[in-house]
Design a protein around this nucleic acid. Structure first.
Lengths: 130, 130
DNA sequence: GTACGACCTGGAGCGCGCTCCAGGTCAACA
DNA sequence: TGTTGACCTGGAGCGCGCTCCAGGTCGTAC
């Protein structure tokens, strides 16, 4: 089973342009081509794309994804290095979550203030007009 | 008490250039100037900068921060609208946290696999070489 | 009085991650 | 046979959020 670029885009959630772009920058190996020279993405290509989008969502820069991609081509020998990259990324995601949590607290505090203002608590005015 | 731009940068964690940039794009009202025409940031300026950096950390685009900033200048009348913006942002932060959590799960799964590989579980090879 | 360092301005430049475009090929269908 | 539509290529362009630069002004220290 293989997929046209449109189908691969639909399934991966990336745009057609982005798929070609990822190939150009060696994030994705060139997929097979059909008789007419059109890209035919394999199941494995899609799995890899899915993982790439996860990495992207974590905020991993493309340059780092490329490093990971190139290590992957070197097979099992590169497993330790790849693991290190993932562990680092896990750390940075955890940090980011903590950071967002703290922002969430600030937002909650502010929102509460606005609500108190709405309810006529004059003590909230100081905060809201600050 | 007022602060030089260098001091304000140090305290806010933003660069000097960024402070001037924020002023230029009306995220920050022009601070007072000292006798020599140099910026003199007030305590209130710093408080606002601190809040701005929180918003930025949540991923709020600058255009939206500008909207918030301009509402703030309109005083209490704009409080409801500002509250709405913050509530929306809280929602998007919560979503983002959830998304990151799910990425964390994927990373953990992958990392576990790499560790099993290291320990000689051949069943992990399939995953790692995929 | 001159050297220094912090600050000023307007404007150009940059890195990132796409996104769009022109001009072309090809297979399928009316 | 002609038109459509999906796909191709190489390369330019874009929006974001800064970041850097040249050339200038001030106040202080020697």
């Amino acid at each position: 089973m293989s997929y046209s670029i449109a189908e691969a885009a639909r399934r991966s959630g990336l745009s057609i342009d982005t798929l070609r772009y990822y190939e150009r920058i060696h994030l994705l190996d060139p997929p097979e081509r059909d008789a007419a020279g059109r890209r035919a993405y394999s199941e494995a290509d899609l799995t890899w794309l899915q993982f790439l989008t996860k990495l992207r969502t974590t905020g991993m820069p493309i340059r780092r994804m490329r490093e990971y991609a190139s290590l992957r081509k070197r097979g099992v020998a590169s497993a330790a290095r790849r693991r290190t990259i993932l562990i680092e990324q896990r750390g940075s995601v955890a940090e980011r979550i903590a950071e967002l949590q703290s922002c969430l607290d600030v937002l909650d505090y502010k929102i509460t203030n606005y609500e108190q203002l709405e309810q006529g608590y004059s003590s909230a005015v100081r905060e809201v007009t600050a």
